[in-house]
Simulated assay, not measured.
Amino acid sequence: MNLALFDLDHTLLQIDSDHAWGVHTTRIGWTDPEAFALRNDAFYAHYKAGTLDIHDYVRFATDAVRERGPQAAAAAHADFMREMVLPALLPAARELVEQHRARGDTLLLVTATNEFVTAPIADALGIEHLIAVQLERAPLPDGSGDWITGAIRGVPSAREGKVTRMQAWLAERGLDWDRVHCTFYSDSINDLPLLEKVQVPVATNPDDRLRAIAQTRGWRILDLFEKLT
């Protein structure tokens, strides 16, 4: 089985969807502009540095969603997709995904952003399999269903967790690493563990540290938004 694995933020998407969702919640009046922006930017800096405490970040990032409830959150996310995400899904990214689809590869979006933010983006790209940070859910007080609690369920798909979650995905299908051929596209040094695991690592719009490693190891470097737009 040939697998094409894609990171999302700054790999297929020109923005960081997690950070942008936070900006969107402020724009629609769900969060205090100054206080939220300071914390959101600080978490984003930790992410880029590889020092993010993902549990703390997910609690922070889902606060507004948890308080507003599922219906309001779904409506806000639809606006977010239209206003911020779809304009940042450039033809270059769609073309790359479609190249792998045309080859018959199985497509997976493997992201450290939570499933609430990313599931509609995977749908927009036509990627069936999503490995994202899973959110714990609990029954709503009114008995109308369940909703997110702000906690992470299971192993977060960040750094080494992406390897763990991919291994679980393979095992669920009776597969292991020796029975698949994987190509993985990522921009981030945070994804080095999974890049080192696959047969074809592709440093895509890489940050400076990942670019240096890719050059040293002879990995393919794809400046996607420059070359394919």
Rank of each mutant, 00 (worst) to 15 (best):
M1S: 03
L5K: 04
L8R: 00
L8K: 01
D9C: 13
D9S: 13
H10G: 05
T11G: 05
L12C: 08
Q14V: 05
Q14L: 03
Q14N: 03
S17A: 15
H19Y: 15
A20T: 13
H24F: 14
H24R: 07
H24D: 06
W30G: 07
T31E: 14
D32N: 09
A37E: 13
L38G: 11
D41I: 03
F43E: 01
Y44W: 14
H46K: 14
Y47G: 00
Y47E: 02
K48D: 09
A49S: 08
T51Y: 10
I54K: 02
H55F: 15
A61P: 06
D63W: 08
D63P: 00
A64I: 06
E67P: 01
R68K: 15
G69I: 12
G69Y: 15
P70D: 10
A72E: 13
A76R: 12
A76N: 14
H77G: 08
A78W: 14
D79P: 01
F80M: 11
M81V: 08
M84R: 13
V85L: 14
L86D: 14
P87E: 05
P87R: 06
A88M: 12
L90W: 12
P91V: 00
P91Y: 04
A92Q: 03
A93D: 00
H100G: 09
H100P: 02
R101K: 00
R101F: 02
G104T: 10
G104D: 06
D105E: 02
T106N: 03
T111F: 01
A112V: 12
E115R: 15
V117G: 07
V117E: 05
V117H: 12
V117R: 02
T118L: 05
T118Q: 09
A119Y: 11
A122H: 10
D123N: 05
A124P: 02
H129N: 12
A138N: 09
L140V: 10
P141L: 09
D142T: 03
G145S: 02
G150D: 09
R153G: 04
G154R: 02
R159Q: 15
R159C: 07
G161E: 07
V163W: 05
R165Y: 12
Q167M: 03
W169S: 03
A171C: 00
E172W: 06
R173T: 02
D176W: 10
W177L: 11
D178R: 15
Y185G: 01
D187F: 08
N190Q: 02
D191I: 09
L192K: 07
P193W: 09
L194D: 00
L195M: 10
E196I: 02
A203V: 04
R209A: 14
R209F: 04
A212N: 08
A214G: 09
T216P: 00
G218I: 06
G218P: 03
G218Y: 07
I221L: 04
K227D: 14
T229A: 14
